[in-house]
């Protein structure tokens, strides 16, 4: 009975997850006439600096998200139940708006004639170049993906039994020590899934860099987009780059899960 119930999901997985993966792999290892080649994979090496930049930006954005989200999730988890749900709703609120629109809004905020620079010029400060920089891309990533960090952290922290914290206090921990020795280890699964949920979309994003990054902040997602929809049509190379990117993400995730496994029995699914 259980098997029958699971069948539609298995079929779904097969059609929409497994098959596309094979199609990507097929394209990655063939030429446009269908012959086997390794050229697409080898050529990916030319774009190593872009891979490096994408990984660097995504990692930086993930760390910033974690630093901002962790205290926030902790504070929310320790509020009264009613306030908690309101706060979580506020965290989710921006996500009700279209992702493109939110990113687009940053253009008007940080542009050379944007809101911030207009305010600065009113008090006599020279305009600062913010839009079309790498910083703007990272800002965009942090802004767009931070709810994905807050939510898993909050979910895990809300479940931590308050009496454990009290026990830590009774045994002589001060507030800071009990966070360090009790809350952080217990919230590890939340940290891991938060990192996963921010890092993976951030590394393959393309529209944020296009909208906020200007001419010289092309990321790996943009490069892939160019090969498929964009201006240098070469789906085989695009598939090759995607394939390499998948392998990199897989390795990174394996590492993160390894850290997790060392002191936690709860595993997180990628």
């Amino acid at each position: 009975m259980k098997k029958i119930a699971a069948a539609p999901y298995q079929l779904w997985m097969a059609i929409f997850v497994i098959v596309p993966l094979f199609i990507v792999a097929y394209f990655a290892f063939t030429t446009d006439s269908g012959a086997f080649t390794l050229e697409n994979i080898i050529k990916t090496a030319d774009y190593a600096p872009i891979f490096a930049r994408s990984i660097g930006f995504a990692a930086l954005a993930t760390v910033i998200c974690l630093i901002i989200a962790y205290p926030l999730a902790y504070i929310i988890a320790n509020m009264s139940k009613n306030v908690q749900s309101t706060m979580i709703m506020i965290v989710m609120l921006p996500m009700w708006m279209n992702f493109l629109l939110r990113t687009y809004a940053w253009q008007t905020i940080i542009g050379n004639n944007g809101i911030i620079n207009n305010l600065l010029s009113m008090v006599g400060i020279e305009p600062i170049k913010m839009l079309n920089t790498s910083g703007a891309v990272i800002l965009g990533m942090v802004y767009d993906y931070i709810p994905f960090m807050i939510l898993p952290l909050y979910t895990v922290m809300a479940k931590i039994d308050k009496s454990i914290m009290e026990a830590a206090g009774d045994l002589g921990c001060n507030g800071f020590q009990s966070i360090l020795k009790v809350t952080i280890p217990l919230s590890m699964p939340g940290i891991i899934s938060g990192i996963t949920m921010v890092f993976v979309p951030a590394i393959s994003t393309f529209i944020i860099s296009k909208m906020l990054g200007g001419s010289s902040n092309l990321l790996i997602g943009d490069l892939i987009e160019m090969q498929f929809l964009g201006t240098s049509y070469n789906p085989n190379l695009g598939a090759g780059i995607s394939f390499v990117l998948m392998v990199i993400i897989l390795i990174v995730m394996a590492f993160i899960n390894l850290i997790d496994k060392s002191d936690q029995e709860e595993k997180v699914i990628i």
């Binding site: 092309l218 201006t231 240098s232």
Partner: peptide, 12 residues
């Protein structure tokens, strides 16, 4: 074109 667009120069 891909080469032009993908040249890396960092400006933080």
């Amino acid at each position: 074109w891909t080469e032009i667009r993908s040249e890396v120069n960092i400006d933080l």
